[in-house]
Design a protein around this nucleic acid. Sequence first.
DNA 1: TCATATTTAGGAATGATTCCTATTTTTATT
DNA 2: AATAAAAATAGGAATCATTCCTAAATATGA
Lengths: 133, 133
Amino acid sequence: MNNFGYVLDMKNYSIQRESILKTVQGTHSHPTAEWVFSKVKKTLPNVSLGTVYRNLGLLADNGKIQAIHFDGVIHYDGTMENHQHFYCIECKTIIDIHIPNKSFVSEVEQKTNHIIANSHVHMNGICKSCKSK
Amino acid sequence: MNNFGYVLDMKNYSIQRESILKTVQGTHSHPTAEWVFSKVKKTLPNVSLGTVYRNLGLLADNGKIQAIHFDGVIHYDGTMENHQHFYCIECKTIIDIHIPNKSFVSEVEQKTNHIIANSHVHMNGICKSCKSK
DNA sequence: TCATATTTAGGAATGATTCCTATTTTTATT
DNA sequence: AATAAAAATAGGAATCATTCCTAAATATGA
Ligand SMILES: [Mn+2]
Ligand SMILES: [Mn+2]
Ligand SMILES: [Zn+2]
Ligand SMILES: [Zn+2]
């Protein structure tokens, strides 16, 4: 992702970067770059989409937010806590699941001898509320 | 995915569809449409990329193969058996993991009351052989 | 202050995928 | 076999999320 000719320390946040980070952290909706862009534009009307993309990428690279690929588009997640995602094919919502599966990961690590840096569980189906209709 | 004005039954396979299916089933490399295209072209030089995309989508919709989004591009998997994927960030290989995690899925189903149709586990890290270097 | 480093806005380029359509191939019917 | 209807294809254009480019703006620090 980082494709510049110099080192980025991410210590000094521009107002754009600050606003982008706060926007992602301020929602549980797993927004796309476009959504963040439209939000940030309300306080920084001149912000550019390129800046949003660049900073979302940088923030993810530096462990401030998570990037999650969903059906080919990148969604961002303000919480770094490890959790899973359920996608309702009915109401098209991404729902957080907070059930630890550490034991599965360590089982895989032990049985395969690979080093697992991180893991994601994606589940698809019909959510509770859509089911009861 | 199916966006035509008539019914597709998938009963009668064209030589293109047959070749595309066999190509995906004949590898464990989780190929992309482009890769399948280059393979199929060797026996069917006039096959078009659009046909490959269309049939891969149809085959996946009809449960013949799996479609897996990886870093924003679609990879196909010839085995329908439920399994997980490990991606080595070093050698950039997708490795199959065959360790059941049904208990986790049913735990989620029970605790959340969502209906889980299918689930995927993506793991990232350093594979066994890259580790020992 | 002056030079250097970093970031931005804006827009062009990219690339994977989907869409369009005329033509070809298959299937069903007489 | 001839005809008509249905399905699939080749080829290329369009889409769209993302990345890349660059000149201008802003920040840093000696
Ligand atoms: Mn989440
Ligand atoms: Mn696989
Ligand atoms: Zn729902
Ligand atoms: Zn490796």
